[in-house]
């Protein structure tokens, strides 16, 4: 991860890499979380992935092991993260005033390919997630096309976990190398969506339909927030929309919880097992096929 970046090679701002995940697509997947998001969800479970670090340095004095340091980069102050000193206590995330994370690595396509190669016997594929992964689409295309061109790795499936805000042109660009996308549908009425995430949902609905037409839609996820999102109130419209998707598309119902959440959404009721089961029973009248429900509730 620390090897010198070759000039002109694509890099990405990566907040985290998991070698083992069984909840980010089919089989075991390496998950690459990219920093930065264009939504600003009140209910965000990972708010430290939203913005890029502005190098304000507020986190530096809080680091108990000196893993965060101020360095000069062309006369500008820069927060540098020394991973070997870091204990992953996440205090820096708690004190960050900017919904960001100083522990970001700039990783090149070739570095990532080397890591994937090391683990490939353990993997069904890789998933890029976020933040909003598609904000770094040129990197994703470079990575996916390199995987598909590599004899040893080409069997690995390449997935994107996205909020669906990417343009149709964007999806078309990555489609030749994309095996599946997982898209969140957070609200049905555009006004509710605007209030919840800061943007309307026109592009999200268009992305879902377009990916389904391309045969690249793996999963649609509905986050049920009782009394806040409108997916239950608008269940007839949501259900008919989902029923129109190919049967191969997995529909996953997620239950809103408080873990990781900050601000006003902490005052909202959590979604209980019975809440999600009731929502499921409403939705099932329209969808009429198995849907995935959460395995764990807090």
């Amino acid at each position: 991860m620390t090897s010198a970046v070759k000039p002109l090679e694509r890099t990405a701002k990566v907040s985290r890499i998991l070698n083992f995940s069984c909840v980010d697509g089919p089989g075991n997947r390496m998950v690459i979380f990219l920093q930065g998001c264009n939504f600003n969800c009140i209910s965000c479970h990972n708010p430290h992935t939203i913005n890029h670090c502005n190098h304000c340095g507020d986190c530096v004095p809080h680091c108990p092991t000196g893993a965060l340091q101020i360095t000069k980069d062309t006369n500008e102050n820069k927060v540098t993260w020394v991973s070997s000193l870091c204990t992953q206590c996440d205090l820096c995330l708690d004190v960050c005033p900017h919904q960001s994370n100083p522990k970001i690595s700039e990783i090149s396509v070739s570095d990532l390919l080397a890591l994937i190669r090391k683990h490939h016997f353990f993997l069904s594929g890789i998933t890029v997630s976020g933040g909003e992964a598609t904000l770094q689409l040129p990197f994703i295309i470079a990575l996916f096309s390199a995987i598909k061109a590599d004899a040893e790795l080409s069997h690995l499936t390449c997935f994107i976990d996205s909020n669906g805000e990417l343009t149709l042109t964007g999806w078309d660009k990555v489609a030749p190398w994309l095996d599946g996308a997982m898209i969140d549908l957070k609200s049905w009425q555009s006004e509710t969506h605007q209030w919840l995430v800061g943007r309307n949902n026109h592009r999200v609905l268009a992305s879902i339909k377009h990916l389904a037409d391309l045969g690249k839609l793996h999963e649609v996820r509905l986050l049920h927030i009782p009394g806040k999102s409108d997916l239950d109130i608008e269940v007839a419209a949501v259900g008919k929309f989902l029923a129109g998707l190919p049967e191969s598309v997995n529909i996953r119902l997620n239950a809103f919880q408080h873990h990781g959440v900050v601000g006003e959404a902490l005052e909202w009721s959590k979604c209980s097992k019975s809440d999600i089961e009731y929502f499921h029973s409403l939705l099932y009248q329209y969808v009429r096929r198995p849907m995935s429900l959460p395995g764990v509730y807090s």
Partner: peptide, 18 residues
């Protein structure tokens, strides 16, 4: 392995084979 793997046995297959 955490119990979320129950919904995705293919991940267990990958891990065993790896």
């Amino acid at each position: 392995i955490d119990e979320t793997v129950k919904a995705n046995p293919e991940a267990m297959f990958n891990l065993a084979k790896g």
